[in-house]
Design a protein around this nucleic acid. Structure first.
Lengths: 233, 233
DNA sequence: TAAATCATGTGAAAAAAATCACAAACAGAA
DNA sequence: TTCTGTTTGTGATTTTTTTCACATGATTTA
């Protein structure tokens, strides 16, 4: 009991990718694996640790897009472009290790292995699907909807089922949570406080326990889409 | 003078795709080419007319995601999935015609033609990139930012350069514009009114003319990203 | 051409969210 | 353990946005 509820696609084919892996990189908490605008030579697969993918706007407000862990792919959007550059920031929020894959090599592999290319297209589809649904939630359901949606996704990706509810096994500050929602830190603090008072969640040493995910779901009219499309990776 | 400023990728390879085209479909204004949840057998390439891609939430609020025209691909996200279903609504807002491509056929073609698969991955990358940037604008810059971003993208996709400014050559109601921004119809009306009073835009028979796109850009701290990543397709 | 339908503009009020300012709580380092 | 820097909670205020209600304007269509 008490393990991750869902692990994303790329399975056998992931092995293929890893074979093309050139080197491994140590990830130190607080550093960046890459940042927006840097020239991109490599794509990565996480072996351990956690990485937050974000995009800044010009006012330096940050929007967190994904929270990645073991087996997740990061830096993928640079494939097959001229003068490839990273589009996002990849911040290490839990130390670990990643396998680096040279983009040029990967492009060759994809070109010669249609099974893998196919798998990759499928993965991108899934990925796109998640993103769009998430943004719909963020844009249409107000800031409360944004937070609830984020919590649900965090449950699906990092939730550990306990007797009392689902423990979201990541240490996130309110500010970071706010960056997932495009909202103000204080608003998150207030909304979490409300949920706490209503007994929907509780907070135990910086981690959230969701006692009634159903409540969050009904509040945003969650259509109970399959868990593989409703996560934060 | 006076033509579309940018036309998206898939060029030669588009021809390849079209060769696999099975039939063509007439598009009648006001109808839907497909709707969320319907089983998906075909992907489409627009030959003429305009189609709006949207996603609903459970409260039946609609979020408009793309506005597609000649040579744009719609219904693409169903590839390589089991029990494929459309994720979005495709509403015809200007009559025209589309080439339908059977998904199973296309999967075969992609599988056997790595050049095409490669091109497809690249297209999806671009597509993803646009989407993410757009949503960042929507989420981080408030409702005004959302509208300005939408107007800029509309200029890039449908703008016709005139002496006085850029004419956005699409007939959109305030409600439809609002659906692109995740905002209320009345708010759009008010914001457009303000822009009109300031002389930034004017409206001529339901179409917007942007006199100072620069003003819109500075307001949302637009980093002047390449036009091919800043459009509404 | 009139009637009907749909789209727009706008005031007033309510609701949602951000901002500012500061105290309290907590975590990590010395 | 104490100090220090970070994170959290919260009141008060301001700003942004939505909502409601209704008048006006524009387009269809019969």
């Amino acid at each position: 009991m008490g393990t991750k509820q869902y692990k994303s696609t790329l399975t056998y084919e992931l092995g293929e990718l890893l074979k093309a892996s050139d080197r491994s990189v140590k990830l130190k908490k607080g550093t960046y694996l890459f940042q927006e605008g840097q020239p991109a030579k490599e794509m990565y697969i996480l072996l351990s640790g956690k990485i937050q993918i974000s995009k800044m706007n010009a006012e330096r407000k940050e929007l967190n897009l994904r929270l990645c862990q073991y087996n997740d792919i990061v830096g993928e959007l640079t494939l097959f472009t001229v003068d490839p550059r990273y589009l996002f920031n990849a911040k290490v929020i839990e130390s670990g290790e990643a396998a680096a894959i040279n983009i040029e090599n990967l492009e060759k592999v994809l070109f010669n292995n249609s099974k893998l290319a196919y798998e990759f297209i499928r993965w991108m589809n899934d990925h796109f699907r998640k993103t769009t649904t998430k943004f719909r939630d963020l844009v249409l359901n107000g800031k409360k909807g944004a937070l609830y949606s984020t919590l649900i996704r965090l449950c699906n990706s990092y939730g550990i089922v306990k007797e009392t509810g689902i423990l979201i096994d990541v240490y996130l500050t309110n500010q970071e949570l706010a960056n997932y929602c495009g909202t103000a830190r204080e608003s998150v603090s207030r909304m979490l406080g409300e949920l706490r008072d209503e007994g929907i969640i509780s907070i135990e040493r910086k981690r959230v326990i969701v006692h009634s995910i159903q409540h969050l779901k009904t509040e945003i009219d969650c259509e109970n889409c399959p868990i593989e499309f409703c996560n934060i990776e």
